[in-house]
Nucleic acid binder design. Structure first.
Length: 202
DNA sequence: TTCAGGATGTACT
DNA sequence: GTACATCCTGAAC
């Protein structure tokens, strides 16, 4: 398998956000492998982005991990019940990250259905299957990600991203038709709400 | 198929 | 005390 390496993350955040689309997010959980294909991402860049938790290099205990070297996981808790997963990008000291907003489940379906709804795949309604991983909170739930996993190194074994996993029959994706748009859910951030830093594929 | 409203904890002012 | 990078349910269309 070809795990994405440190130099991949050590680049412009928007570039990383685009290139993550179609890649495979892998979570090692209780001796199972949970895999989802990334379908939607957003870029957050601290030095210039009011919507970013680390706007203008503002550092707090919560967002400290965004200042770490690229290739780490920034997971935070929001709205009283949900977690969001970000991948830290750009050189150490530049607080920026890519928010993962959507995945398509690929492996470990049964485990993910349990984590998400407490049911087996066969018991899910069509509506539940359709909305399995199309949101940042949902994807964290399906992959059993909480603040406990905040700060994980994406070059480790517990959580990482691959562009292909031949062992599982997952090949590199071909050219993608990438849709670009404004980011979701950040209406109170002045001009930053209009930045077209949301990327998605079908 | 879309929509409004409620649930809920943490970080930060 | 307030704001928040959200999700689910149930009711109406």
């Amino acid at each position: 398998m070809s795990k994405l390496n440190r130099p991949f993350y050590n680049r412009d955040t928007c570039t990383v956000a685009r290139e993550l689309l179609g890649c495979y997010l892998v979570r090692s959980w209780q001796s199972s492998l949970l895999v989802g294909q990334i379908t939607e991402t957003e870029a957050y860049i601290g030095r210039m982005d009011r919507a970013c938790h680390a706007y203008q290099y503002h550092k707090t205990p919560r967002n400290a991990i965004m200042f770490a070297p690229p290739g780490h996981a920034y997971i935070y808790f929001t709205y009283g019940m949900h977690h969001c997963l970000n991948l830290v990008t750009e050189p150490e000291g530049e607080p920026s990250a890519v928010l993962l907003r959507g995945i398509r489940p690929v492996c470990g379906l049964e485990e993910m259905a349990r984590l998400r709804y407490g049911r087996s795949v066969g018991e899910l309604t069509a509506y539940q299957k359709k909305n399995f991983g199309n949101g940042p909170g949902k994807l964290c739930r399906a992959l059993a990600l909480t603040r406990e996993q905040n700060g994980l190194d994406l070059l480790g074994e517990e959580l990482y991203v691959c562009d292909a996993i031949p062992e599982l029959g997952l090949l590199p994706h071909g050219p993608l038709e990438i849709k670009v748009g404004p980011r979701v859910g950040i209406d109170n951030s002045g001009e930053a709400k209009d930045y077209p830093w949301n990327y998605s594929v079908e």
